[in-house]
C-alpha cells in the first residue's frame, strides 16, 4: 500500500547550515509516528517544512497523489495537514470557538457577500461548526464545551493544549502533526492528554499522526513506529523497544564519551 505521506531526500538549508539532510520519511494511513531527537536535531524544522512555513531546498513531498513540495502554507493546510505548535499559538483574548473555528475556516464560505447580506448560508455553517466544536471539545474536557464562548486565555495550560488539538482536528485533517504536546505540563496532565488522544484515535482510524516528544513515556504509549533525528539526519527508524536499545541513539542523546 502506498503511504499517506512520502518525503524523500527532503533537505532544508539555512545558508551554510543543513537543518534537514536528505530525509526519507513516510507515514502510512492511520499510523502514529514518534519523532525524537536531541534539541536542534531538526524535528520542528521538519514540521515547519511540511506545513509550508519554510520552503525546502530539495527533495520531494507527496500527500497521497498530491505534490506538496514547496507549496504555500495555505495549500498544504487545505490539503489536510494540520498541526499544533511547541509554544502555544492560541489567540488568547478570543473565544475558544473562534480559535477552533480557525481550524475549519479554509473550508468555510468566507465571501463578503454571505458575511454581509446572505446570512443564511453563514448561519447554517456556523450552527454546524458550533455543534462540531462542542462535540470535539466535550471529548477532551466537558468544561471546555460548556464554555465555548469564553476567551481561550481564561483556561489552564492543559485546557489550552486541548483547545489547540481540537483546532487542529476540527478540519478533519488526514495528517496531524503534534509538536511536543507535553511541553510545560505535569506528568499527570500529560498522561490525561494522551488518554484523550488515544481514545480519539480509535474513532478516527485513518488519521495519521506524527508526534514530536521528549517524554519517552508518551512515545512508548502512543507510537507505532519511531524515527530519531540527529543533526537533520535520520539515524534510526523502528519500534520503541529497538530504539531504547540502539547504540547510536544513546550516543546522540547522552553524548559519545565511551
Amino acid at each position: 500500500m502506498s503511504p499517506l505521506l512520502a518525503c524523500s531526500g527532503l533537505t532544508m538549508r539555512f545558508g551554510g547550515l543543513t537543518a534537514l539532510d536528505a530525509l526519507d520519511i513516510s507515514v502510512g494511513k492511520g499510523e502514529t509516528i514518534g519523532l525524537v531527537g536531541p534539541n536542534g536535531s531538526g524535528k520542528t524544522t521538519f514540521f515547519n517544512v511540511l506545513t509550508g512555513l519554510y520552503k525546502p531546498s530539495a527533495g520531494a513531498v507527496q500527500l497521497e497523489a498530491q505534490d506538496l513540495f514547496a507549496r504555500s502554507a495555505q495549500e498544504i493546510g487545505r490539503a489536510g495537514v494540520a498541526r499544533t505548535f511547541q509554544r502555544s499559538r492560541l489567540m488568547l483574548d478570543q473565544t475558544v470557538f473562534d480559535n477552533i473555528a480557525l481550524g475549519a475556516l479554509g473550508r468555510l464560505d468566507l465571501s463578503l457577500l454571505s458575511a454581509l447580506v446572505l446570512r443564511g448560508r453563514f448561519r447554517r455553517q456556523l450552527s454546524e461548526l458550533v455543534e462540531r466544536a462542542t462535540a470535539l471539545t466535550r471529548r477532551f474536557n466537558p468544561q471546555i464545551a460548556a464554555n465555548l464562548f469564553k476567551p481561550a486565555g481564561s483556561f489552564t495550560m492543559i485546557d489550552r493544549r486541548r483547545i489547540e488539538i481540537c483546532r487542529a482536528l476540527v478540519g478533519a485533517p488526514r495528517l496531524l502533526l503534534l509538536d511536543e504536546p507535553s511541553a510545560g505540563m505535569t506528568h499527570e496532565e500529560t498522561r490525561a492528554l494522551m488518554d484523550d488522544l488515544l481514545a480519539f484515535r480509535e474513532e478516527m482510524p485513518d488519521l495519521a499522526i506524527v508526534l514530536v516528544e521528549h517524554e519517552m513515556d508518551v512515545i512508548r504509549r502512543i507510537s507505532d513506529r519511531c524515527i530519531v533525528l540527529n543533526f537533520g539526519k535520520k539515524i534510526f527508524e523502528g519500534p520503541f523497544d529497538a530504539l531504547i536499545a540502539d547504540r547510536e541513539v544513546q550516543t546522540a542523546y547522552l553524548g559519545g564519551a565511551q
Binding site: L53, A73, M91
Partner: peptide, 21 residues
Amino acid sequence: SFVGVALDAVRSDEVAASVFG
C-alpha cells in the same frame, strides 16, 4: 461572521492563520 474570525486570526497570528489555510 467567519470573515471577522479570519481577520482576527490574521492580525493575532500570521503563522497560525496561514497554517490553517
